[in-house]
Every structure is written in C-alpha cells, then in structure tokens.
Design a protein around this nucleic acid. Structure first.
Lengths: 197, 197
DNA sequence: TAGTAAAGTAAGTGGATACTTACATAACAT
DNA sequence: ATGTTATGTAAGTATCCACTTACTTTACTA
C-alpha cells in the first residue's frame, strides 16, 4: 500500500466551488471544463472523484441542503425561544437570499426532473426541508398554545412557496429589497402566526 | 410580387408545439432538431420564422402568458361576482396545474436569467401576471368592503409563490393531489380573504 | 530506499447540435 | 404564361463538450 487516498477530503473541498458554478450556470450550461477551471484542477481529476457530471450535480444538491440546515442550526445555537427562532429564520431567509445559490440550483434541478436520480435527490431535499420548517413552526406554536387555523404542514409549504417567489422577485429585481423583505415578513407572519400583530 | 408570406400564421400554429417541447425539456436540452421534428417541419423552416433558438424560446415565454390570461378571461366570461371569480381562479389553478407547462417554462427561463433578453421577457411576464392577480383580489375585496391586513400586492406575490410551490409539489409528487389542492385552497384563502371561513 | 498507488499534465475523441447552404417546387401577381 | 417569391428537401459545417487515455510526478509505506 502507498499513499492513502484523499478523495473524500478533496471532494469536500471542491463541493462549494462546484455548487457555485452550477448555481451560476444551471446544469446544462455548466461544462465540466468550467467546473475544473473554477476548481483549479484538470477535468480528469473531477472524474476521479465522481463518475460523471450528473454525480457532481447530485452531490451539489445534497450539499446545498446540508449547508442550509447547518446555517439554521448555527443561527439557533443559543437556544432562543421558539417564537424568536421562527422570527430569526424568517429574517435570515428574507435578507440573505441568493447568497448561497440554493434556489438557483433547485431551479436548475427542476428542469431535469425526468431524470430519476435528480428527481429523487430533489424529493429528498424538499422533504427534509419541509420537515425542518414544520418542526420550527410546531415548536413556536406549542409554546404559545395558540390553535392556529392553518395546519402546520400547509403553513410550511406556504413558507417554502414564499421563499421561492421571494427569490424570483430578488433574481428579477421585481421589487426593491426593502419592499421584498417587508412582503416576506408580512406573508410569513400570516402563515405562521395565524393572526398578524 | 408573388405569393404573400404566411409566416405569421404558421408561427402561431407552431407556437403551442414549441411551448410544449420547451416545457418538457427545458431550454438547453431542447434541440432545434427536436423542435422541428415535433412541429413536423425541417429545421431551416423554423429558422425562417425566428432568427435563432433563443427567439423561439422568447416567443414561447410570451405565449404561455397570453394563453393563461386568455384562459382566465374565458373562465370569467359570465361575469361572476369578484369573490366567485377569485374562488374559481384558485380552484382552476390548484387543479389544472401543469397541464400547460407554464411553470416548467418559467423554471427553464429562470436558469437563463443572465441573458438580458430572457430576463426581460420573464420580468415582463411576472409583472403582467402579478397585475392580473392584484386586479382580481382588489375587485374581490372592494365589494365586500373588508379591510384585510395584508396589502393586495403582497397577497398577490404570496399567491404566485403558492402556485409555484404547488407546482413543485405536483411535479415531484410530494403530496397526493387532493392534499395538494386542500393546501392550495387553505393558504390561498388565508392570503386573499384575510380570515378563513 | 524501493515499490506502489495516488495526484497531476496534456492531448485527444466521438458524438451532439445550432445554424447554414444549395437547390427543387409550388403559388401568387401581373 | 411568366417571373418572382415563399415554401420545402437534404445535406453539410464548425463548434462545443462529456469523457478518455497515455503519461509523468509525487508521496506514502514497508
């Protein structure tokens, strides 16, 4: 035996770069040449880490979820009250959208849903994300003991929709950012709280 | 002079087919060869109707909006009360999603937003659509004279987000369709009405 | 230090694809 | 009819890109 493989470490190092390229260019327009260039390696090195371009994309989809989940957990590391937690997440999502290319990768993936692997990766991602949101809303509601009209699962889908359209609004500059944030906050409050305050 | 051009008529005839292909495959994966095949003409005939592939795509984006707007106006042709109108639209949108490839084309376009022409087409489309939704909500609210908490423009963005996530849920089969429709209806009611009934 | 496998370099290949060209035919005006 | 222009056919081209191959160098182990 000689020289242990550092493939895992290197792929972890390269993944953020790969995510960024995919989020900038989408799936089809991203060339393996461009990926290699941005990663500052040669193409065949990428092909030693992943069997093909699709695998690189799947890894990117997985990574963006883990990334986002970790951000949330870091944001809630100081154990705020559940209601504070929801408010903090809403604020975070409304303000720092787009920085991490989350939705751009999702959009890219959504145009490839006739590929079973990509579809599965997306389904998994959405289910986990929806669950995460549900948990937060649930926690927030239980404490206040307020029976809201909208079931938690539905509110969570509504929030995901809100985050999506808000990203589109940002992407296309359909509203100035302060208005977009206000919109996000107002709709989110309606969805989560049941009543506006 | 000889033989007047029927280019306009033919492009109108071909557009629905082109929309369908783009919505099935997205922008990049759609080849001009496939477009021609589905349209049952040769490639160069498409190139006589549009200067390039991008122009075909832009025409498709414009067409899906016009298509949808016309559907709505037909749906409201019998002059229902504004409140009925909103309910009808919500029901229509929640049930017949995906049939016309609207969101698939939007997703495809959203991964091409660094092209100015495509971005402009999308912006125009969203502004018109948002306006349309605003008008309907406004009409519905004025009649009832109920002051709702959520400003109309925000509610409209919320609805667009709801329609978007609902399409994703449908596309990925994240919920059975009856649950998806219930979710759509519940969230829409919350957004539009202010209170649930 | 010698042997071995990973890490890196550089060039290629085969297929796909946006767009073109050259030419034949069909329909309309005068 | 006849000239003109739209419409149709079929082949071609130049480029791009996912993926490969053949080779050299490096670093670890025993």
């Amino acid at each position: 035996m000689a020289r242990p493989s550092q493939a895992l470490e290197q792929s972890k190092k390269l993944l953020p770069v790969i995510c960024h390229v995919f989020s900038e260019l989408g799936y089809r327009r991203t060339t393996t040449g461009e990926l290699a260039h941005q990663c500052d390696v040669r193409e065949n090195i990428l092909y030693r880490l992943w069997p093909d371009k699709k695998a690189m994309f799947l890894a990117a989809i997985d990574h963006i979820f883990c990334d986002r989940a970790q951000m949330w957990s870091e944001m809630l590391a100081d154990h705020p009250t559940p209601k504070q937690a929801v408010e903090r997440i809403v604020k975070f999502e409304s303000q720092r959208q787009g920085e991490f290319g989350f939705y751009r990768i999702v959009f890219a993936a959504l145009t490839e849903t006739d590929d079973d692997d990509i579809r599965r990766a997306l389904v998994k991602m959405y289910k986990r994300f929806h669950q995460l949101v549900c948990n937060q809303i649930n926690a927030g509601r239980e404490v206040d003991d307020q029976e809201s009209d909208l079931p938690v699962e539905m509110a969570a889908w509504g929030l995901l929709g809100l985050a999506t359209i808000s990203n589109i609004v940002r992407e296309l500059k359909l509203l100035p950012s302060n208005q977009r944030e206000q919109m996000f906050a107002a709709v989110a409050k309606l969805l989560v709280g049941g009543e506006t305050t």
